[in-house]
Write a protein that binds this DNA or RNA. Structure first.
Length: 326
RNA sequence: CCGCCCUUAGCUCAGACUGGUAGAGCAGCCGACUGUAGAUCGGCUUGCCCCCCGUUCAAAUCGGGGAGGGCGGACCA
């Protein structure tokens, strides 16, 4: 797999392809970033972008993980002390998950976002951006909370972060695309470059196959799930024997195989009772999908394999969390 | 600052006029059926009725105060 392929695999979109091709021509030392609001426990959504960061590292990129304490504060997520504490836990979990420590720079937002230059640039952005535009950028992230002034400052800071972290590629979920598009339009107004962006898909809800999986409502997979909890959650997942269910639904079990399992494992073994034909081995997502579609692989067997794979992926982080919490 | 409207289950809302400590749909949970889940049946759960004070034997309901949210306050009509 060449650099361009690895950079763009499993991406929902890149903006623009030409710009990414240029990065892929000489990826060594290029910088990519994702920003996260500090959270005590990583969930599967975090891991989806982390997988992309791992891809990028394998291509030679330096990765910057922004632990966005100021953003969390703007989102009313607690005191700075609490937020920084969870930021530290988040960093440890990312490392346990598989980000290369030597090639990952963890940056606390407050380490530069309170500087004068940053503040003045932020005000310039505020002058140049309409309320409607900022609110639209934030709509995907904010939910239906009452709009606060902090909510419109938030995406402007995200835009500015891309410049101040000196990154060549901004990575985020599709929920971040409006923020990134805002950055592409507004940063040049301040004399900065428009950032190149890469967006990961948003995985469908585990239980219903609808929309995006939510971390606050419904079921999500997280770094602290026990083996038994993983089995329970995966077993409860929506999983018709097809990759393309009726309507707008998706098959979340397949999606997780595609976006979480196969990128991290060369081979997936599906343990299957002899009565149903014995074990199966898959070297690619496509092969697994084809077997589910044909009926060769039963959803229940796919699920137990998925739970086992997730357990393996999460185990180091789960262990690290246990150590951190004493 | 002024005016009007809203606040009841996780969600959307009924109930308020004619006081008697609350309902529906959806969601959720459990079971049946499928070698998964869903669908489909069957069953079940859920509430500081925004807060405080007052009237009353009795307040979600009436009165007063407060909080939060929405909308409006040139001209024209």
């Amino acid at each position: 797999m060449d650099a361009y392929e690895r950079i763009t695999r499993n991406a929902a979109e890149v903006v623009t392809e030409e710009e990414v091709e240029t990065l892929a021509d000489d990826p060594d030392g290029k910088r990519a970033y994702v920003g996260y609001e500090p959270s005590g426990v990583l969930h599967i959504g975090h891991l989806l972008t982390a997988n992309k960061l791992i891809d990028l590292q394998q291509c030679g990129f330096e990765v910057v993980v922004l632990l966005a304490d100021v953003h969390a504060s703007l989102n009313d997520k607690g005191t700075f002390e609490e937020i920084r504490d969870t930021a530290e836990q988040m960093k440890e979990q990312f490392l346990a998950y598989g980000l290369e420590e030597a090639n990952t720079e963890f940056v606390l937002g407050s380490s530069y976002q309170l500087d004068e230059d940053y503040e003045l640039d932020l005000h310039s952005l505020q002058v140049g951006t309409t309320l409607k535009r900022a609110q639209r950028a934030m709509a995907e992230l904010q939910g239906d909370d009452t709009a606060k002034v902090s909510h419109v400052v938030y995406p402007l800071m995200q835009a500015l972060d891309i410049e101040y972290l000196d990154v060549d590629l901004a990575v985020g979920g599709m929920d971040q695309r409006k923020v990134h598009m805002l950055a592409r339009e507004e940063l040049p107004e301040l004399g900065y470059d428009a950032p190149t962006c890469l967006h990961t898909p948003i995985v469908g809800d585990l239980e219903t196959g609808e929309g995006k999986m939510s971390s606050s409502t419904g079921t999500t997979i997280s770094m602290e799930d026990s083996t038994a909890e993983l089995e329970e959650k995966v077993n409860a997942a929506f999983c018709p024997p097809t990759a393309d269910p009726e309507g707008d639904l998706v098959n979340p079990v397949l999606e997780i195989f595609r976006y979480h399992v196969f990128p991290r494992f060369d081979e997936v073994v599906v343990e299957r009772p002899d009565e149903y034909g014995g074990d199966l081995v898959y070297g690619s997502y496509d092969a697994l999908e084809a077997d589910l579609e044909s009926g060769e692989l039963h959803p229940a067997d796919a699920k137990s394999a998925l739970a086992a794979s997730l357990d393996e992926l999460i185990a180091p982080g789960r262990e690290r969390l246990r150590e951190l919490r004493g």
